[in-house]
């Protein structure tokens, strides 16, 4: 049986790729594409009369296939279905890194899942607290309650918006400008950052519209998202490339951190680097840029 290392609550998650847990052809080699996380789906991708079969398939995939450093998340069925409790049992028994709560609308939803995970961890002899949670916000109510949701559990590493259901609730549809989701994305980001957790954008469903995909990526990068849910391996590379810092940003960040450390030692608080004012407030951002650059293979120094 494959024993996965203890999941890391805050790790690099630029891409989280959905795949149907019921289709062996998909999940057997899901790790080779290089997405940061995969999300094996027990929810919408699995027909109502195949929920049981998907769990057997998932259990053996989790315990047999070595996914390496790819994070393995399972999207479980909603709290309003008869399936979610058994979904949680199989995820914990199989050693999934985390579970994704679909259609999350309140802190209570998260706490219910948290308690069920604890119970399952005790049942299967797994360290309590090991299994992480990501909550998907798919309705106006979920977005309005984003902050209480973001603060609801120590297991929660992030929130994700789900565009399909959200747009339906809002009686709107996809707009290339992003205006359809702007308020919701903004509110969810504020809540996630206030709570100190990660924030992920919805899927882009038109696989032939490369330009539209790129435009959306630029927008979510500018807004400050950590990553994006994806539905096809061909979407991995554009996301990784566009969410990576530019060469120039990396150089500036490196210069800033270096200069700050020297200045701090010399008792100086504010100074300039390449003509830009720098003080202590800029340093965490510069360090984050360097960490991301390191994860993307663009930086090999030892400042972070």
């Amino acid at each position: 049986m494959i024993k996965r290392p203890k999941p890391e609550r805050f790790r690099l998650r630029r891409t989280m790729m959905f795949m149907n847990a019921q289709r062996p052809g998909l999940i057997k080699d899901a790790y080779i594409y290089g997405s940061d996380s995969i999300m094996l789906d027990l929810e919408d991708a699995v027909a109502e009369n195949q929920k049981d079969a998907a769990r057997f398939s998932l259990y053996h995939a989790l315990t047999t296939i070595d996914y390496g450093s790819t994070e393995v998340i399972v999207r479980i069925n909603g709290l309003d279905t008869p399936h979610w409790q058994e979904d949680i049992r199989v995820c914990v028994a199989g050693g999934a890194d985390g579970i994704r709560i679909a259609k999350c609308e309140s802190a209570d939803n998260v706490k219910t899942i948290d308690a069920a995970l604890t119970e399952a961890e005790k049942e299967f002899g797994v360290e309590v607290g090991r299994t992480l949670i990501i909550a998907a916000l798919e309705s106006p109510k979920g977005i309005l309650n984003a902050y209480e949701i973001c603060c609801a559990s120590e297991r929660l590493f992030g929130v994700a918006i789900s565009g399909g259901d959200f747009r339906r609730c809002m009686q709107t549809k996809f707009d290339p400008s992003g205006i359809d989701m702007l308020a919701a994305r903004g509110q969810m980001l504020l809540a996630a950052r206030a709570a100190g957790i990660q924030c992920f954008d919805t899927v882009f469903t038109d696989l032939d519209d490369d330009e539209g995909f790129e435009a959306e990526l630029r927008q979510i990068k500018a807004m400050g998202f950590d990553g994006k849910s994806i539905i096809n391996p061909k979407q991995i590379r554009p996301v990784h490339e566009l969410l990576a810092p530019t060469q120039k940003e990396v150089q500036q960040a490196e210069a800033m951190v270096n200069a700050f450390r020297e200045a701090a030692a010399a008792g100086i608080g504010v100074f300039t680097v390449n003509g830009k004012m720098v003080d202590v407030a800029h340093i965490p951002g510069a360090e984050r840029t360097l960490k991301l650059a390191k994860a993307c293979g663009m930086y090999e120094g030892d400042l972070v």
Partner: peptide, 21 residues
Amino acid sequence: KARVECAVFRSCGKSASNIPW
């Protein structure tokens, strides 16, 4: 394994919950 197990549990009407993972 997964398919054989699921078929057997279904034939006993026990495939939906409390599976001995």
